[in-house]
Design a protein around this nucleic acid. Sequence first.
DNA 1: AAGAGTGCCAACCGCCTCCCT
DNA 2: GAGGGAGGCGGTTGGCACTCT
Length: 331
Amino acid sequence: MGRSPCCEKLGLKKGPWTPEEDQKLLAYIEEHGHGSWRSLPEKAGLHRCGKSCRLRWTNYLRPDIKRGKFNLQEEQTIIQLHALLGNRWSAIATHLPKRTDNEIKNYWNTHLKKRLVKMGIDPVTHKPKNETPLSSLGVSKNAATLSHMAQWESARLEAEARLARESKLLHYQSKPSSHHHHHQHGFTHKTLLTNWTSKTNEDQQQQQQLESPTSTVSFSEMKESSGISTKIAFVGSSTGLTLIKEPENDWINSTIHEFETTQMAEGIEEGFTDLLLGGDSLGRSFSADKNETAVESSGGGDCNYYEDNKNYLDSIFSFVDPSPSDSPPMF
DNA sequence: AAGAGTGCCAACCGCCTCCCT
DNA sequence: GAGGGAGGCGGTTGGCACTCT
């Protein structure tokens, strides 16, 4: 059965974390940074293995985590990146900076995967299960090209994920950089503790309601000459868009952000969102949890089904090669 | 009201990769 | 180059909450 689990020895604690444990872990990292995870539990006075501490920190306690419902843009990004990268959740997570790979993975498995299946799309290959009508339009040829480009893009994203990881590591590995990081999100560790570790479901919902109207979409403008990219975050709300600029060294982001910019400009987003989430333009609902309409069983659904899948693939294609006429070739 | 079924997600497990010696 | 330790990743599961019958 392979090697024994790391925390089997010495009767280390497993299972759900208590608020007290969370507090100890947070206080320690706040003070010292995490350093070596293996030695951390003892130093922090925790009867957990280092691995468990790391997981708790990265998936729950880290101050830069956005929790709650995924917005449309996030769902869209996950689906598109999954089409390119497959189940490489950590790579996908680097493009949803406030989401953890675990959360994305869970959301995919519980929501998005099912939704694609309902649409007649294979969630593994992101191709329609019945490919015949599309093949006749030359989509198969495109798919071959896509596959090739996806390999390239995949490698790029992997490098990017590594860079992101390294920068995060540097940030916390020694001593965390004072408090500015936390204040940036409007709360300190103390409030974090009160708000999160002893939070009831009701509280979580309230928090979600607070967070959900504010969706953040990031764009990077490539500064080809200088090699420095500028990150622009559009903080959207019902009242409009706020533009936030912050410097960033993450040069590889351009592809995905280019795509997002193109989508915003061309209004593709609406079609894609409709396709996945159910909108008026397609005249039916994909709202997976409630008010579902069976797609495959509808009598006149074949035409919509075909159009949906075509739009879906178009969207993925445009993701890889967003605007052939306006921008220089990427490959 | 209560038992069964289902959904969701935090946490675990084991494998893999990287890095140091 | 080999070996071992540590961290990271993706698949899976346990248990709670909610819904259905």
